[in-house]
């Protein structure tokens, strides 16, 4: 299977704080790759490095064999058309209606507004939202609906790779599972590569094809779902079981 994202020895510090300390991972095309890790392990920073929102200090990231960092503005904008991103809190634009959020890229490309709205409503239907939601403002939506609209916006331009940053955080268990089902459904329908960052083990085991565990800025385990469920690695085992006692020490 072809590698679509190749992360090699990526390092990133903020001041004296080393967040990524040589993270390496290959993400295969057409799979759902789950990246696990505790709070502050560097998951979201890694995601932002892949998207070029943060410049890496060392190492390299390539997408489809082309470097994803240090790009010129036009090259970066072109790279972004390959990605769709669901942010943790959806990051919907408050000043726009739901359909304008979903069709943002299309409107930027000067598509006719009626046509863009028609496509936005189609994408909203894909994530299980009715057309009457289209005219609402993001402030009128529940947490689950916001995530769905964020997802509709992420898939509107038919990206090859979709990133999910903590997709189930802050949702009730049933709504969280609906989002899990959506991730699986979209993966099948769009035949894209999905990268899911989470610490919700139920969600991780449900959606993952491959899993990787990020600890203190490095990937210390990588494998399929079965290998994670039966892992002997004390760090992975502690995290998967959600045990307070073990090699990972958390200070509250």
């Amino acid at each position: 299977m072809a590698t679509v994202i190749d992360i090699k020895n990526v390092k990133k510090s903020f001041g004296k704080k080393e967040v990524l300390r040589g993270a390496s991972l290959k993400i295969e095309r057409g799979t759902t790759q789950v990246i696990l890790g505790g709070s502050g392990s560097g998951k979201s920073v890694l995601l932002k490095c892949i998207l070029g929102l943060i410049e890496v200090d060392g190492g390299s990231i390539s997408v489809n064999g082309k470097p994803a960092n240090g790009l010129k503005e036009t090259e970066h904008a072109e790279l972004m058309t390959m990605f769709g991103m669901l942010f943790q809190n959806a990051a919907l634009f408050d000043s726009m209606s739901v359909w304008e959020n979903v069709a943002f890229v299309l409107l930027q490309r000067k598509m006719d507004r009626d046509e863009a709205k028609r496509i936005a409503i189609k994408k909203l239907a894909m994530v299980g939202l009715r057309a009457d939601v289209a005219e609402l403002s993001p402030a009128e939506l529940s947490g689950g609906m916001r995530k769905r609209v964020g997802l509709a916006r992420a898939i509107c331009h038919e990206p090859e790779i979709i990133f999910y940053d903590e997709p189930t955080t802050g949702l009730d268990p049933i709504t969280a599972d609906v989002i899990n089902d959506l991730i699986i459904k979209l993966q099948k329908e769009l035949k894209c590569t999905s990268v899911v960052i989470t610490h919700d083990m139920h969600s991780a085991f449900k959606v993952a094809d491959r899993m990787a565990f990020l600890y203190q800025g490095q990937f210390i385990a990588e494998g399929d779902v079965k290998s994670f469920k039966n892992s002997d690695n004390p760090y992975v085992k502690q995290f998967v079981e959600g045990n307070a006692n073990g090699p990972i020490q958390v200070t509250v």
Binding site: F93, F104, V105
Partner: peptide
């Protein structure tokens, strides 16, 4: 609220 990051990921 990451809306500015969202703009970048939407190629704006």
């Amino acid at each position: 609220t990451e809306q500015i990051d969202a703009l970048v990921t939407l190629a704006a």
